[in-house]
Design a protein around this nucleic acid. Structure first.
Length: 439
RNA sequence: GCCCUGGUAGUAUAGUCCGGUCUAGUAUAAGCGGCUGUCGCCCGCUGGACCCGGGUUCAAAUCCCGGCCAGGGCGCCA
């Protein structure tokens, strides 16, 4: 097979921009062969690019021998270029097709692909993830990641607008003593280091200089989790704000969620249609349920949980049926939250931490942080952690730590909500979990 | 880590309960041939599979045991 070079060809249009109004005009299209329907005297080639598809029609007797022999050689997933004339027609659903004058074949593909990319025979997630690069060529997956992109863009611009500065904190950290989630160890020259599980302590330190910061980046959790909402490597959207309380950042969060849903709904109509997903733009303010109220709601549903205990997953599923969209859970027992969450002044048994739930899934959690060094040391000890291990963090409290609050959103979980996907690995390009490290 | 369910051509499935015409069916994909308006094109032909190991039995895709892998659930998740 002779492989063509791109030469001086440059794309003039994406497939979706080939419209009946261009009738008679010459276009240069780049993309991949999605499907070929050969009727003998006429051949239809569906050309796909990231924006969609268009039909290339090859009438055997009306094209050059060169075009005919090129189109004879085509197979699914060949990367090609087509220079041709747009033809308005009533026969195709899109009302338009392209008659090729010249075809370039840039690369071939194996004839037997590991899965059906046209959607006639669906493949299992395992098969799809094993051939993820090919799986990602499917329109449905392109839609998922375009939606994620639109959401991230909306979130960034929203936070910029609100005066947040984008920062980048270390992924490689020295200490494994934060407690809670397990860390992945890495070799760091002659010593041992760990992959960061969160930017928490760094973003708190940054509020004493940059005041309002956010970070979007990957973090790592070495948990044994085997569920459809956990990953070993996930993307966190973190903010931290000086001179603010939990209520302030909850308001920011609910506005942000509303904004992101609105932008995705407007900008990604086609993608949502591809996914057959109806996205509702939520009203603000979101419901605010206290932990105690949640226990009451659960009791009404026949699920009894003693005050102070963690809420198990099946109870969250029940709760998600009672409150089927966004809601906050506030006023958690202090002992159930991280050491840096501020206990309430009027009742230290409760804290100013909150979770943002979507149905039964925790989308985000945050709270007012402790700004007093003494209290923080006390809370570390109560959690069974050694303040000595936190000395670098604790010393920053000697330099004027302001009152502050913040939260973190799991990007993949947000994407699940936006796309209607039920498994987090569907909305992750190359998921890493307890049992998968490749591709 | 625990529990449940499953593992059959490239892909998706039927068959497994109740062992025997299963020489393992179907769809789709692939290969070959035919077809000038397809859009899940159509028609004909061809090749292609019982996760691995052990056991029971005259006989195992089917029953039993072990392993590996997957899906779901639980737990873990500052």
């Amino acid at each position: 097979m002779k492989i063509d070079s791109i030469g001086n060809w440059r794309r003039t249009h994406h497939t979706v921009d080939v419209k009946p109004e261009l009738d008679g005009q010459e276009v240069t299209l780049f993309g991949w062969v999605q499907e070929i329907r050969d009727l003998g005297g006429i051949r239809f080639i569906i050309l796909q690019d990231r924006e969609g598809t268009v039909q290339i029609t090859v009438p055997r007797k009306k094209v050059s021998g060169e075009v005919l022999s090129k189109s004879d050689a085509l197979q699914k997933r060949f990367s090609i270029g087509v220079k041709g004339t747009v033809q308005k027609t009533e026969i195709t659903p899109r009302g338009v097709e392209v008659i090729p004058k010249e075809i370039k074949i840039f690369s071939t593909a194996s004839p037997q692909l590991p899965m059906d990319i046209t959607g006639k025979v669906p493949a299992n997630l395992e098969v799809r993830l094993d051939a993820r690069a090919l799986d990602l060529c499917r329109e449905e997956n392109i839609a998922v990641f375009k939606i994620q992109h639109a959401a991230v863009e909306a979130i960034r611009s929203f936070l910029f607008e609100k005066g947040f500065i984008e920062v980048h904190t270390p992924r490689i950290i020295a200490s494994a003593t934060e407690g809670g989630a397990a860390l992945f160890p890495v070799n760091y020259f002659e010593t041992k280091a760990f992959l960061a599980q969160s930017p928490q302590l760094y973003k708190e330190q940054l509020v004493m200089s940059l005041e309002k910061v956010f970070e979007i980046g990957p973090f790592f959790r070495a948990e044994e989790s085997h569920t459809r909402r956990h990953l070993s490597e996930f993307v966190s959207i973190d903010i931290e704000q000086a001179f603010a309380t939990a209520e302030d950042v909850m308001q920011l969060l609910e506005q942000l969620m509303q904004h992101a849903c609105k932008v995705v709904k407007e900008k990604c109509r086609r993608e949502l249609a591809t996914l057959k997903h109806r996205l509702e733009v939520p009203e603000v303010p979101f419901k605010r349920l206290t932990y105690t109220k949640v226990l009451e709601d659960l009791k009404n549903e026949g699920v009894e949980i003693p005050w102070g205990e963690d809420i198990p997953t099946p109870a969250f599923r029940t709760l998600g049926k009672v409150h089927p969209y966004f809601y906050f859970i506030t006023d958690w027992p202090t002992h159930s939250k991280a050491f840096y969450i501020k206990p309430r002044d009027d009742n230290p048994e409760l804290c100013e931490g909150f979770d943002l739930m979507w149905r039964w899934i925790e989308l985000s959690s945050g709270g007012t942080r402790i700004a007093s060094k003494e209290l923080l040391i006390e809370r570390l000890k109560e959690k069974g952690l050694n303040p000595e291990s936190f000395k670098h963090h604790l010393q920053t409290f000697d330099y004027g730590m302001p009152p502050h609050a913040g939260w973190a959103i799991g990007l993949e979980r947000l994407t699940m909500m936006l796309t209607g996907k039920r498994n987090i690995r569907e909305v992750t390009l190359y998921p890493r979990d307890r049992f998968r490290l490749t591709p």
